[in-house]
């Protein structure tokens, strides 16, 4: 098997708040294989957001060993960490985090700016990825001219444009209605299946989590349950035939909506 996308060994993160040490993570050990589909669940305050920040290279652990894309995070400087994020991680946020006053194609092209790619090539690649998420007809729309579901798909395109090894999604459906949420979820799952990008998704929606191939449950800064550990054969198996809950429907934008409606 190829090198894991993420490898965490006894990782901890302690915050200093007014001189008081507040442990948010207390020794988390987990491995995310390339192309895996993992849901991280747990109540608020369980440390799942902190874990996401660490796995995304936005933050560095205060203890333990964390390897992203073959590099030990703890030893990297902020600029090196920025480059690592650019090359290996794609983020999808609950609040989309698109730049206002900036067209969809330029929003998607943004990570390529920090890779030093020329403007024309940036736009070409961004347009191609937007086409892939079903927004080929919305290239020059600004975020406020797009629906919530479309905005999240622009954000997904932005996460994908750099060909990352891991897609980190933090409550990606949290700000969407059921229909759009289902569509976005279907899109993420399709990308995971087709391009082999590992998908790690934080959610507190059990229904969403149930669709993942693997579920990690957090509580009080530690992993209390990991379906991979509970049921290793299922997880070490090859990638299943399709999205866990998507059936055989074609999960493009419009179809996603239809399928969600059909599912009711």
């Amino acid at each position: 098997m190829a090198t894991p996308a993420i490898e965490a060994v006894d990782v901890s993160r302690t915050y200093q708040l007014d001189g008081v040490s507040v442990p948010a993570l207390r020794g988390v050990t987990l491995t995310v294989a390339a192309g895996d589909y993992v849901a991280v669940i747990g109540p608020s305050g369980s440390g799942k957001s902190t874990l996401m920040h660490l796995l995304g290279g936005l933050d560095r652990p205060t203890g333990g060993r964390l390897v992203l894309g073959g590099r030990e995070v703890g030893s990297l400087t902020p600029p090196e960490l920025a480059t690592l994020r650019n090359e290996t991680i794609g983020f999808v946020f609950q609040a989309f985090h698109l730049l206002p006053r900036t067209s969809a194609v330029d929003n998607v092209a943004l990570p390529l700016v920090y890779r030093g790619i020329g403007a024309r090539q940036r736009r070409e690649r961004a347009a191609a990825v937007l086409g892939r998420v079903g927004l080929g007809h919305r290239l020059h729309h600004r975020p406020n001219q797009l629906s919530g579901g479309e905005q999240q798909r622009v954000a997904i395109a932005r996460a994908l444009v750099t060909d990352p090894t891991v897609l980190l999604a933090d409550e990606p459906t949290g700000n969407l209605d059921t229909v759009n949420g289902q569509a976005v979820l279907a899109l993420l799952e399709e990308l995971n299946t087709e391009s082999g990008v590992a998908l790690v998704m934080v959610t507190h929606d059990n229904e969403v989590a149930a669709r993942a191939r693997r579920r990690i449950t957090m509580r009080d800064g530690v992993v209390v349950a990991d379906s991979a550990a509970d049921d290793p054969p299922a997880d070490s198996a090859a990638v299943p035939d399709g999205p866990a809950a998507g059936g055989d429907a074609d999960p493009t934008a419009g179809d996603g909506t239809e399928r969600a409606e059909a599912a009711r």
């Binding site: 920025a82 090359e87 985090h97 990570p111 920090y114």
Partner: peptide, 16 residues
């Protein structure tokens, strides 16, 4: 601030 955070998340270095 949010824009700065986003830019950093997608790979902007402090210098950028």
């Amino acid at each position: 601030t949010r824009e700065i955070g986003l830019r950093k998340a997608v790979g902007a270095r402090p210098r950028d």
